[in-house]
Design a protein around this nucleic acid. Structure first.
Lengths: 339, 339
DNA sequence: TTGAAAGCGCTAACAA
DNA sequence: TTGTTAGCGCTTTCAA
């Protein structure tokens, strides 16, 4: 019956149980100095018996250097976000850092302020902010310059160092691919942009202009697959629409579903291309042609840039990843080419 | 050019700038005692100008009661996990708690120990552990009884209070539905179970036994949709398989894809039912018949149970949610009934 | 209403 | 190799 020690054991309890001084316990904990084998063994035994876990708060306070990395994101469950965070977390963990994630849900001043202070209050070593959406962008603006910060984004921008996905180059590749297949032009359905214009949209427009094609009006979707479905339902009525480039895979899947509901087929009547390479993209009916973005690697790079800053090593302003076109079955030649 | 203040402002800086003592600043920060309007205004002004944010580490240390809730999960990006965490986070946030998430990736002693100490080290008020998989179960076992803890699970089990999804009842409903449609029996593909047998599997087996049907051997899948596809490819060869109940929606979608690749149809030849109601389930081709689990509400309940424990209020041992069957188009009558 | 002083759990600098 | 002392930033007695 060891019974409720009522409060969690602290280092002094360990010292007492082991018959040594507090700093000696600290030394075996940190490995900062040599301790005789005999005492070390006693300490280890006491730690084990008491179930002692050092308080990170106290450690941070005394140590000066916090071992915590703060992440601010607009979302935690959407695929790209979750993977990016995983990449950051894995890098940080292997370096002994813990990661704390805070979500910022809107661009309202109060909400952004809450999120930022909640992270800053945790005595963090540095921050990574996901600039995938307006709340993320707003949060980044509120972070004091004194905090080592790295951002993650789909487009290069001035400011703090950033790990970036070259969305624009990928979008151009998509458009080129579709045009080469014989489509006259490519329509674009975008998800809510993080700023005036996302890289995906820019790349799409440029590619069209370069090839001298008409640039159709942009169609706006929300983050929900249902909005993709609604747009698909509407687009299926317009025979001149033969190719659609969607802002992400969820929208693309919703859209294909909408198109199919009208009795038209993908890619027979309309080619649809997504973005992200969602884990389910290859298993959709039909399998989705899309752009693979390595979010996990993106997060990993962001972490490594931050690590360099923390250690005072020089770091590049940008670390860029080029997404890759994945050709599956949702895009093909336009109907005119088949007839 | 405000330039590097070199270090973040601390409470003493604020006190100096405002011309008051440190405890006075603390009082306006916590609202614990009355401060004259004049001094309060000065303090607020200084806080604002300096961009001061109180250190949570110091606060925790001196305050005793931490405002942090620890969450341990086997995963952060899979749908059900992410939603559950969101539910916990929303509840906690509205009560002024911050949430810190730690992932346990395996059941290896070392890994589990790392995760548990990393959470415990943060001086947390309480914990929520997601017992959806073996790593989560292992982690729960290592948490000292002195820490207020709630678990989240798909099946009732003795131990700490838990928020539970009544998977077993839902699975029975699925099987009943399929049998009523005319199928002779229902095959079951399960995802890696969190314990000997998950609620989904138990419910499936019981329903079959109760109705006097044959209980086919369980088929094991991994978490990847690809494993669903492989199984679909194989099952499509067996004409006696007319109905399949899958452990989750990702597997169900992969399986439908596999079945379709062989030229057989869903639900024409085989009915497939998923589990979870993944956000994409309704947009798959065909839309997936599945079971909706309200993970976010589950997380919210877990938080509320924990809150009750922290406040010393009595709490139920279980808080149970009944998932609901969502009838869409991937399940129908068996081929024999149509011919 | 305010300030001085003590203490939260830990690590680091200093002696022994 | 060890223990003593001081101090991290904050809150909380306790006096004034």
């Amino acid at each position: 019956m060891t019974l409720h020690s009522s409060r969690a054991p602290v280092i002094a309890d360990v010292a007492r149980a082991a018959g040594v001084s507090v700093p000696t316990v600290s030394r075996v904990l940190t490995g900062a100095a040599r301790v005789s084998d005999e005492k070390r063994a006693k300490v280890l035994k006491a730690i084990d018996e008491l179930g002692f876990v050092p308080s990170a708060a106290a450690r941070t306070l005394s140590w000066g250097r916090p071992q915590l990395i703060g992440v601010i994101a607009g979302n935690t469950s959407r695929y790209g976000y979750a993977e990016t965070v995983r990449g950051i977390e894995e890098g940080a963990r292997s370096a002994g850092f813990t990661v704390t994630i805070t979500v910022v849900e809107s661009t309202e001043d109060e909400e952004v302020g809450r999120a930022v202070s909640s992270v800053l209050g945790q005595s963090i070593a540095g921050m990574v902010v996901l600039k995938f959406d307006p709340p993320g962008v707003a949060a980044l603006r509120r972070i004091p310059a004194s905090i080592p910060t790295v951002s993650v984004s789909g487009v290069r921008e001035p400011g703090v160092p950033q790990a970036v996905l070259n969305e624009s180059a990928a979008a151009r590749e998509v458009v080129g691919y579709l045009l080469d297949l014989g489509h006259q032009t490519v329509h674009h359905v975008r998800v809510p942009p993080s700023r005036k214009e996302d890289g995906r949209t820019t790349g799409w427009r440029r590619a069209l202009v370069e090839r001298g094609r008409a640039v159709p009006p942009i169609i706006d979707a929300t983050w929900q697959p249902e909005s993709g479905r609604q747009i698909g339902l509407a687009l299926a009525e317009r025979p001149e629409v033969t190719a659609v480039f969607c802002g992400n895979d969820e929208i693309a899947m919703g859209m294909i579903r909408g198109i199919c509901e009208t009795g038209r087929s993908v890619p027979g009547d309309v080619s649809v291309v997504g973005f992200d390479d969602h884990p389910l993209a290859g298993y959709y009916n039909p399998p989705l042609t899309t752009v693979r973005q390595d979010f996990c690697e993106l997060g990993g790079r962001a972490y490594r840039m931050l690590e360099a800053m923390l250690q005072g090593r020089p770091t590049n302003k940008y670390s860029s990843i080029k997404p890759a076109l994945i050709r599956r079955e949702s895009a093909g030649a336009p109907p005119a080419f088949r007839a």
